[in-house]
Every structure is written in structure tokens, then in C-alpha cells.
Computed example of a mutant assay.
Amino acid sequence: METLADLAHVQPDAISHAPESEPLQNYMRNAASVIAVLTEFSDLDIERAVTWFRHAPLTELGGATAEQYVSQGRTAAVHAYALNLIAGATG
């Protein structure tokens, strides 16, 4: 829960006491949208998509993970990167 709170830029108690908070909901919505792109347009199942999202360094964007970039508000860049990766244009 602490990691999620850090990524969403909320206090840890917000996860259980204020799950409707805008920063938490925005982070969750954006994270889910990236994972949805991966499962919809590639051959990744949900588990592999989540693993990629959390652990794969996105070298062309600077080396952080998709999870970290979404936390920084760079969801559009991650969407574009993922679609390029799926199309074979990067990676």
C-alpha cells in the first residue's frame, strides 16, 4: 500500500480512508489504461502486462519503468511507447 501511495502521490492512509481521492483515482485510471493497451494490442496476458508495466525499463524514454512514468504524469508518452513497441518500432 505504501508503494501505491507513493506512486499516486497520496498519504498511505488515503488508500483505505480516501480511495476516491482524485490523485489516487487518476493514477489507477492511467495505470489501468496502459495495461489495457498492452493486453488489447499485443499478445501479453494481464500478468505479463503488469510485470512489464512495473519492471521493464523504457530505455528510449530515459530508463524508468512505465509505472514510474505514469506516476510522473507521463501516461501519454507511455501509451505512445507501448504502441510503438507493439508495432515493432522500438525496443
Rank of each mutant, 00 (worst) to 15 (best):
I46D: 09
T59I: 12
V70P: 01
Q25S: 07
G91C: 06
R54H: 09
A76P: 01
V34F: 09
N26E: 12
G73F: 10
A31V: 06
A18D: 11
A8R: 01
Q25F: 04
Q68A: 14
E40T: 14
V10G: 11
P12R: 07
R74V: 01
N26S: 12
N84E: 15
E67H: 11
S16N: 12
L24W: 00
E47D: 15
Y69N: 06
R74G: 01
L7S: 03
L58Y: 05
Q72H: 10
H9R: 13
R48G: 11
G62K: 07
F41I: 05
Y81Q: 06
A87F: 06
S33P: 02
L44T: 00
R74D: 10
F41P: 00
G91F: 08
E67I: 01
A89F: 11
I46V: 13
S21V: 00
E47T: 03
H17L: 11
L44K: 05
E67M: 15
L4K: 00
E67P: 02
Y69T: 07
S16A: 15
A56I: 08
A80P: 00
S33K: 03
A8K: 00
A87H: 08
A32N: 11
T3C: 04
E40P: 00
L4Q: 02
T75S: 14
A56M: 10
A76W: 03
L83H: 11
Y69F: 14
A64F: 09
A66P: 00
L83Q: 13
N84R: 14
P12G: 08
A31N: 02
Y81S: 06
Y69M: 09
P23E: 03
T65F: 08
Q68W: 12
N26K: 13
A80M: 08
A76C: 02
E67S: 10
M28E: 12
A77D: 15
L4Y: 04
S71K: 02
N26Q: 15
A82M: 06
A82E: 03
A87Q: 14
S16Q: 12
S42H: 09
L61K: 03
S21Y: 01
D45R: 05
E40D: 15
I35M: 04
E60A: 14
T90E: 10
Y81V: 00
Q11G: 07
S71P: 00
A89L: 13
Q11R: 13
E20K: 07
A36V: 04
A80Y: 07
E47I: 02
T90L: 08
P19S: 07
D13K: 12
Y27W: 08
A31I: 04
R74P: 00
V50N: 10
Y69I: 03
A18Q: 06
R54K: 14
A18C: 03
T51A: 12
P19C: 04
E40Q: 14
P57I: 04
S21W: 01
Y27G: 01
L44A: 12
S16Y: 14
F41M: 06
T65N: 04
A8S: 08
A56R: 14
